[in-house]
Design a protein around this nucleic acid. Structure first.
Length: 464
RNA sequence: UCCCUUGUAGCUCAGCGGUAGAGCAGCCGGCUGUUAACCGGCGGGUCGUAGGUUCGAAUCCUACCGGGGGAGCCA
């Protein structure tokens, strides 16, 4: 007798086979007509398998009638075409083995929906809900698509370090990594902490980006991508920030900004297309329960070209919009959330790539344009989610890069290995970073980023 | 970190100055090829915590703690 996942057992063509199902009870409905209905879910799909259990089973009263939401069981029997509505097959049980009961008086999940806020407090049981199951399957699809997309294009998957000694990677606050005793760290004569006695003999942190290391690999292997955990110690309390998140960072030698934009657009389009094709049932669920526009948005993402607009044009459009923005628009300012939202949601109504930003508001490594005022940066803005990709063509000219570092208050000496890439065989290159969780938000319509990762890490939040 | 908002039964919420409520869940009974099943009954709360105002506080005020939303930072 084959152990069949529910996703296969639910297909009409499986009717007639004798199978075994292993999973968790979602509901039980008793009929005095001499049987009970169980719905079993095993995570293989959103839908449950309806099991018809006859009261004639020897353990019907002792075991089956004690099954409640959350209990685990193995059921064997014959799959039949279902006469009822809502499913094409059902399992006529000949044997039910209870593995673990779930006391309904204390089990926190029930048939009726719980709020996302409450589910966050029970992150260990949250995967058993429809919503989180659907999110998990879509997240898995997105990860699979990421690898497929880059592998098909000849990109090498490379791994950059999680613990880094780069003192300042330029992207905000970092988490310190140390084995020193915080109560009595070794000190130098002048009273400051002696980091030479720390585990790595120097100060180290969790990475905020694999980009700089990624560039070294791209400047040898051509096209690479990293995909791993990333850490930001910013005190951000929003629906789109995490302290620990997953980031995809492709980096390509001989690419210019236009190539980079083409890549980013094809990449996001692929994520949308694969989700639409391979997660239909889950997307249906999001349309019904989370955001009725999810499918429309995804289809537009998959089919329509993104709008491309330079920062300078964007500012002109914003100034001419007649909107009363809380933060006034002026060339040189960083675009605020309200501006990005107006651009994507009202002005173009789809994802937009804003490119060529003023150098003052962007990082030192972005390539300076001939105008001397802007750098070859790009942000991909998605409706609702905001910035989903940030990237640039990198500054490959040594003197220009050194000058930009000094202007940013950085010591070029501290980045000697990074500068070596420009010193020896420099090439133009470009890359970007995609926040995995933001991509999953965009695809599922989930509004809070803490609901698209199993165990969210955020300020004051490191439970489980 | 700032602004707004919120904390009442296991869950979702109502009550907003006069003796704590509903739906769901749970327990008991009934009914049923059911599918967020249905019908009847029962149990269940130091109203986030600590102060204050008042004859009287879940309700008004203050502080603290937790949740949510928005802003900044960014992916």
């Amino acid at each position: 007798m084959d152990w069949l996942p529910v996703v296969k057992a639910r297909r009409a063509e499986s009717a007639g086979s004798h199978v075994e199902i292993r999973g968790w009870v979602r509901t039980r409905r008793d009929s005095k007509g001499g049987f009970s209905f169980l719905e079993i879910n095993d995570g293989s799909c959103l839908g449950n398998l309806q099991v018809v259990v006859p009261a004639s089973l020897s353990n019907y009263t002792t075991d089956v009638l004690r099954l409640s939401v959350g209990a685990s069981a193995i059921v064997r029997g014959e799959l039949k075409a279902s006469p009822g509505k809502g499913q094409s097959t059902e399992l006529a049980a000949t044997e039910v083995v209870v593995l673990g009961l779930a006391d309904p008086a204390t089990y926190p999940l029930q048939k009726k929906g719980a709020s996302l806020e409450f589910l966050r407090t029970i992150a260990h049981l949250r995967p058993r809900t429809n919503t989180f199951g659907a999110v998990s399957r879509v997240r898995n699809q997105v990860c699979a698509s990421i690898h497929a997309f880059f592998q098909e294009r000849g990109f090498l998957y490379v791994n950059t370090p999680i613990i880094t000694a780069s003192d300042c990677e330029g992207a905000g606050q970092m988490f310190r990594v140390t084995t020193l005793d915080p109560d009595k760290p070794p000190r130098l004569p002048n009273g400051t902490i002696d980091h030479s006695q720390d585990f790595f003999g120097k100060q180290t942190h969790l990475t905020v980006s694999g980009q700089l290391e990624g560039e070294t690999l791209a400047c040898a292997l051509g096209r690479i991508y990293t995909f791993g955990p990333t850490f930001r110690a910013e005190n951000s309390n929003t629906t789109r920030h995490l302290s620990e998140f997953w980031m995809v960072e492709p980096e390509v030698a001989f690419f210019q900004l236009e190539d980079n934009m083409d890549l980013a657009e094809a990449f996001l389009r692929r994520l949308a297309t694969d989700a639409l094709n391979n997660c239909q049932e889950d997307i249906d669920f999001f349309v019904e329960r989370v955001d009725p526009h999810v499918r429309t948005t995804l289809t537009a993402l998959a089919e329509q070209p993104f709008a491309r607009i330079s920062y300078t044009e964007a500012v002109a459009k914003l100034e001419a919009s007649g909107e009363a923005f809380e933060h006034p628009v002026k060339w040189g300012i960083d675009l605020q959330s309200e501006h990005e939202r107006w651009l994507t949601e009202k002005h173009v109504g789809r994802p937009a790539i804003v490119h060529d930003y003023p150098k003052e508001i962007k990082a030192f490594y972005m390539r300076l344009s001939d105008d001397g005022r802007t750098v070859r940066a790009m942000d991909v803005l998605a409706p609702r989610v905001g910035e989903i990709i940030g990237g640039s063509q990198r500054e490959e000219r040594l003197p220009v890069l050194e000058e930009r570092m000094r202007a940013s208050g950085l010591e070029p000496e501290a980045y000697s290995w990074y500068l070596d890439l420009r010193r020896y065989g420099t090439v133009p290159h470009a890359g970007f970073g995609l926040g995995l969780e933001r991509a999953v938000q965009m695809i599922t319509g989930m509004t809070n980023i803490r609901d698209v990762i199993p165990f969210p890490r955020a300020p004051r939040l490191a439970d489980f």
